[in-house]
């Protein structure tokens, strides 16, 4: 099994709410099984804090199997921690060493205000989708599924982009807090499919406009977003979005 135990120290950002100033608190945890997930290590700290009558660390999480997109924090300066292509809930303690001090911070971006501790408000992403991240079909009266033929290659490219879980790691890791990888993934998903053609210009225009209005930064092609994305969404999507934007100008 290769499981063993290590002792680590967590240095976690604590902030009571959006209005107050936060600070780091240090929590040593001993005998952490290397089979434990990172969030389970946080659970352990929280159980200890509760026993001492102290407030546990607030952090978002839900499915704990890497698909819902709810969890996420900067771990030692990297979004979702050191492992490639996984969310924080799938990061395991075996990626750390005995004696490590691990710094845990919330996503930081103007468009993702901190609610408490490691919990941030990512509703900006929902607003972007609401401004155009859909095909305008209502329920009923649609053609038979096989009436729309889609080349396998296009379906695969659409699926690659559609795999985005909306966790916000791209924004968190971008030196400019830009949301372009997220926005481009949706634009690219729909622009690869025949269903998405009718509204493609309007969609690109509106989603980009909304993204800008929400206070995200600009892309300067650092590629940090691609490197931390738990679903390995590719930077090419941003290029696709840029093309969609260009065509929407005319």
């Amino acid at each position: 099994m290769g499981s063993s135990t290590i002792n680590v120290t967590l240095k976690v950002w604590r902030q009571k709410n959006a209005e107050t100033k936060g600070e780091f608190e240090t929590y040593p945890i001993n005998n952490v099984s290397t089979d434990m997930s990172f969030l389970e290590a946080l659970d352990t700290v929280n159980e200890q804090l509760l026993q001492q009558g102290k407030e546990p660390i607030a952090f978002d999480h839900d499915c704990r199997e890497g698909i819902c997109g709810m969890c996420g924090a900067m771990v030692d300066g990297i979004a979702h921690g050191p492992d490639k292509a996984v969310t924080l809930c799938q990061t395991h303690m075996r990626s750390f060493h005995n004696g490590d001090t691990i710094v845990v911070e919330p996503w930081r971006a103007k468009a993702f205000p901190i609610i408490k501790d490691l919990v941030t408000d990512r509703s900006a992403f929902d607003k972007i989708i609401a401004s155009g991240g859909y095909v305008s079909v209502s329920t009923g009266g649609v053609p038979d599924a096989n009436a729309i033929l889609i080349p396998k290659k296009d379906a695969d490219l659409a699926m690659d982009a559609a795999a985005c879980i909306g966790c916000g790691a791209c924004v968190a890791s971008c030196p400019n807090a830009s949301a372009m990888l997220f926005v481009s993934a949706k634009i690219s998903h729909l622009s690869h499919l025949p269903q998405g053609q009718v509204e493609r210009k309007e969609r690109a225009k509106r989603m980009i406009q909304t993204m800008d209005d929400l206070g995200f930064g600009n892309c300067s092609n650092h590629r940090e977003c691609e490197a931390v994305c738990p679903k390995e969404i590719k930077l090419e999507n941003i290029a696709t979005m840029n093309r969609e934007f260009a065509s929407s100008l005319f």
């Binding site: 807090a177 650092h222 490197a227």
Partner: peptide, 30 residues
Amino acid sequence: KLIFENKAARPVDYAVKKSAGVKTLGSATT
């Protein structure tokens, strides 16, 4: 203009920020 906008997009910086391994000399120092 972009530099100022980008600074505004992250008013509070990270205490620890590392590159996830794709940083180039060029991109890091523009």
